[in-house]
């Protein structure tokens, strides 16, 4: 056991502010955006390979994920009626600004693609929209890593290398999982492969994060966020193993898919709450900064 580091503070009060982003709005948006983004990629693959059943499901998931996610994002604003102010400037220094310019076209394109797919109208325009959604999908699923990392919250900022991969993996496993849940097994092969690959990326990124960050990663391992992260890892691992070994059982496939979706939700809550915990404790602000100063003094 590493001894608790000694540090000074102002009556034990936190130094940085706790993020004001609301629960469950923001963790659910993180989940929905990730699932929708990866679903749009699956949908385009399904369209290219003529997998109509999978295409229909994934287009619907992409469009509804983006739509519901946008509602959560707008609801999170202190002044929701001003949500369009997000689009009055574009700033590469603000992942939220960049993200707005990813989410807005993604929502429009994925909705158009889903509408065309379901109604059968304007098939060519629908496909074109689907291609566009697939192009915006991966950025949508991963920019949220920079969104959290571009803050002074130690558990988020220091994880800026791993968070985009963690969210890419979590989004892929959620999109694959949702498709496994909603698609008969004879059509869900690609979804299963995406789910398994996503799970592998997610578990690896999560492990790397904890190893590289040292004491700053404590919030991911302790208390409620720690329990959430462990639960998510176990669910992901279990569902992945069962899904890899299981045959063509629709029920088992659906249960694995649902577990992966749930695990992605839990992961986002875990990461989000770990950030809140790391902001509330001055230890995570002071001790790494002191170590940085000491290292600088040595050189």
């Amino acid at each position: 056991m590493v001894p608790e580091p000694e540090f000074e503070s102002y009556y034990g009060r936190q130094i940085i502010k706790t993020p004001t982003w609301k629960t469950p709005d923001v963790p659910l948006y993180l989940f929905l955006g990730g699932m929708a983004g990866a679903s749009a990629v699956l949908a385009e693959g399904a369209a290219l390979t003529g997998n109509v059943v999978l295409e229909r499901v994934t287009r619907l998931v992409a469009a509804s994920g983006a739509g519901v996610g946008t509602v959560f994002l707008v609801h999170d604003l202190g002044r929701p009626e001003r949500f369009l102010h997000m689009l009055r400037v574009i700033k590469p220094t603000s992942p939220l600004s960049v993200g707005s310019f990813i989410l807005a076209p993604f929502s429009a394109l994925s909705s158009a693609a889903a509408a065309s797919c379901l109604t059968g109208r304007l098939p060519r325009l629908g496909r074109l929209a689907g291609l566009g959604a697939a192009a915006f999908g991966p950025p949508l699923a991963t920019y949220t890593g920079a969104l959290l990392a571009n803050t002074a919250v130690p558990a988020w900022h220091e994880a800026h290398r791993e968070l985009p991969f963690l969210f890419a993996g979590s989004g892929a496993s959620a999109a694959g999982g949702m498709a496994l849940l909603l698609t008969p097994v004879q059509h869900s092969g690609p979804a299963r492969r995406m789910a398994i690959a996503g799970a592998a990326i997610e578990l690896t990124a999560s492990e790397l994060l904890k190893r590289r960050l040292g004491m700053v990663a404590e919030p991911y391992e302790r208390g409620r966020p720690g329990r959430l992260m462990r639960l998510a890892s176990r669910m992901t691992l279990g569902a992945t193993v069962v899904s890899t070994l299981s045959g063509r059982s629709r029920a088992v496939s659906a249960i694995c898919g649902a577990t992966l979706v749930a695990s992605s939700v839990v992961t986002r809550f875990g990461v989000f709450e770990a950030g809140l915990a790391s902001a509330r404790d001055p230890k995570y602000t002071v001790v790494p900064q002191r170590e940085r100063m000491a290292a600088r003094a040595r050189t």
Partner: peptide
Amino acid sequence: NGCGYCVP
């Protein structure tokens, strides 16, 4: 619009 990004 109260997005709160500046806070953390």
